[in-house]
Structure formats: C-alpha cells, structure tokens
C-alpha cells in the first residue's frame, strides 16, 4: 500500500495529529508531538501515520502489519476511543474531535507502555494461557486426522462470531474493570473462553469454567458494555460473558461465587415478591461477616438520612403478585422441560 501516493480527491485540508510520544530510554514522562500534514479525503489514520513516519519524523513508533483490518496490530486510541488505525477514516475522526482539526493518537490502555503507541501484549497472552483458551480436544492426539467431528451449522453459529476476534485488544483497553484491577481476566479472554466452552469438541469445559468463576473472573464484569461497543469486529462480547454466567449457574449452582449468589437473589425475590429485597442483598451475596465489616460503617449515616432499604417483611409485594407467582412457576416448568430436552440430545 502506498504511503506517499495519496488518493486523488477534491477535498483536502491540513490535519494535525497530536501523537503520544514516550521513549523510556530518554523520556522521563510521556508528551505529545503535533504533526500537521495536508491530506485528502478518503485516507485512513494508518496511512496518515505512515506518511508522517516516512516524510516528517521517522522515530514515531507504532505497530502495523496487514493494513486491512484482519491482523489486529494497529489498535490505538484515536480521539480517546480504542480502534484500528487502518480501518479508521481521518475525515470521520475530524468530525469526532473536540478540538477542530486535531486528532489525538494515544496508545491502548490497560497494557504496559513500551514506546510511543506500542504496548506490551504479553499480559493478554498470559491470561489466555491461564484460562486454557484453546480447544483441548476430546479426541486423543494419535487419533487426529482420521475422521471429522460431526458438527451442526447450528453449533457452529454459537461460536462463529466469537472466532472473529483478532485479539487487537481494543476491548482490553476500554474495559472498566481491568482499569480498576489489572488481574481481571479481560473481555477478550472471556470471549475466547466462551467460544471454547460451547465447542462440543472440547474436553475441559468444567475445568475452564472453574477457573473463570474465581476471583478476578467472569463475575467481576460490571456490564458496562464498553468492550462490545468498541469491538472492531462488532462481536457481542457481553453475550459471551452472560453466556459463561448462565452456564456457571446452570452447571455449578450458586454456591461458589458471590456474583452467582447475587444474580440468584434477583430470581428468588421476583418469584416471591415481584421486586428486589435490597436490604438483604449484601448478606445473600457475601454473607453476614462481609456485610457487617463492609456495610455497617456506612449504615449509620444511611439510617440518619432514611436511606436504608426496608427490611424484608416491609417490602410490599407487587400488586399483581399472585398472578406473577403462578406465571413464574409455569415458566419454571417450561425451563425444566427445556433442560431435559437438552440433556437428552
């Protein structure tokens, strides 16, 4: 692809790229360099960066490889959002930028910085390894190559979208919880784990699932949907995360994780009262000891402000609760039947 022949278009203008710079060998802290170049409409951010590297400043450092949106190398934050430079149009970013004519280019977040726009990917690979992000085949290796597994298109479709992931780490960069704790499993790793767990060829489903429900695992996700919203391949990552949770509750029950108990409490309350009994939610999620230690200090002020949720006996059930209870039970019958059908398959 050309870096100097810029496409022939009518519209052209000066664009300033405000690029994050940091070379740990010489810089004590990161700074920004402005590069103003004349560009024509239709050019991608990556081609603009290539142009800068070749004609203005050869030391600007970023990763790029396929330049076609499939290898995942050139993920960076453009105007604050993590995305691929090679599939991002400069003109679109000009519309988005807060300062007229200036596009901010920064490295991904939540991964250690190496230089300028390059971050260390090893922590992500480490997590993939930790969570066995591979199919551990039910078929012994010495049997491989002899016959196909028979897989329905329907099963293929359960992991089809997830296998679009190019590990560009945009979701990692945007993840709320990872920013709050670097040991968190990461959206990409959850997605891959889900993809492996729904694959009938895999033989370590339970072991993988057991790893995912531990601390810093699937239950720590805060459902902010940033991963999904910024996924460059438009993969519904939250569906995968919810899928793992659904699976965890179905297979492991709710005993082993606070997150599962928390989720289960919703089910119980709706079945009984039609609404959530917030007062006992902390106890049901984390037990009495945790609640006393963590929430009692705040309770005093809450009481003063009349902000404490009412105790369970005072939570009025919804008006139509009798009908709702009946319907809920009926649906439970349906679900039981579904499960029987599924395990019979």
């Amino acid at each position: 692809m050309s870096d100097t022949t810029i496409q022939h278009h009518v519209e052209s203008r000066d664009v300033t790229f405000r690029v994050h710079r940091f070379n740990p060998q010489v810089d004590s802290k990161p700074y920004f360099d402005d590069y103003t170049i004349k560009l024509e409409k239709g050019i991608t951010v990556l081609r603009a960066l290539n142009y800068i590297k070749e004609h203005v400043d050869s030391t600007v450092t970023f990763r790029a490889f396929c330049q076609a949106g499939i290898c995942g190398s050139c993920a960076m934050r453009i105007n604050g959002i993590s995305k691929l430079a090679c599939t991002t149009q400069v003109w679109d970013e000009l519309d988005r930028s807060r300062e007229t004519g200036i596009i901010r280019i920064e490295p991904l977040r939540n991964l250690p910085l190496i230089k300028d726009l390059v971050v260390e990917m090893d922590p992500l690979v480490g997590k993939m390894k930790k969570h066995s992000n591979w199919v551990d085949s039910r078929m012994p290796e010495d049997e491989w190559g002899k016959k196909e597994f028979l897989i329905s298109e329907k099963e293929f479709l359960t992991y089809d979208k997830a296998t679009d992931c190019i590990l560009c780490a945009s979701c990692v960069s945007e993840c709320t919880i990872l920013r709050a704790h670097q040991e968190y499993v990461s959206p990409a790793v959850l997605l891959k784990s889900y993809r492996m767990n729904v694959d009938s060829r895999d033989g370590i489903h339970d072991q993988r699932l057991a790893g995912l429900v531990k601390d810093h695992g699937v239950w720590d996700c805060t459902h902010c949907y940033r991963c999904q919203e910024t996924c460059v391949k438009h993969i519904p990552i939250m569906d995968a995360i919810h899928g793992i949770r659904e699976d965890a509750i179905e297979r492991r029950g709710t005993k082993d994780t606070s997150g599962a108990r928390h989720a289960e409490a919703f089910m119980d309350d709706i079945a009984k009262k039609g609404k959530l009994v917030e007062a006992t939610l902390p106890i049901r999620t984390n037990g009495i000891a945790w609640t006393v230690k963590n929430l009692l200090p705040m309770a005093f002020k809450m009481v003063l402000k009349r902000r404490t949720p009412p105790p369970p006996p005072l939570v009025k059930a919804s008006k139509g609760i009798d009908a709702l209870r009946k319907e809920f039970r009926e649906m439970t019958g349906h679900v039981t039947k579904d499960h029987q059908k599924k395990s019979g398959e």
Partner: peptide, 26 residues
C-alpha cells in the same frame, strides 16, 4: 404501574433467560 415486577436488574437474564423474558413481557 403498581402491578409491575422487578426487571431482573441485568442479572435475571443469565440466571434464567426465559423467566427474564416473561417478567418483562408482562
């Protein structure tokens, strides 16, 4: 709406997708 029920708070959907659909359809 006095007869409505708790939506499930972004939790019921993975405990039981069908109950989740039922409650909110209602």
């Amino acid at each position: 709406m006095h007869e409505s029920a708790c939506c499930g708070g972004s939790n019921l959907d993975f405990v039981s997708p069908k109950h989740f659909a039922l409650v909110n359809a209602r």
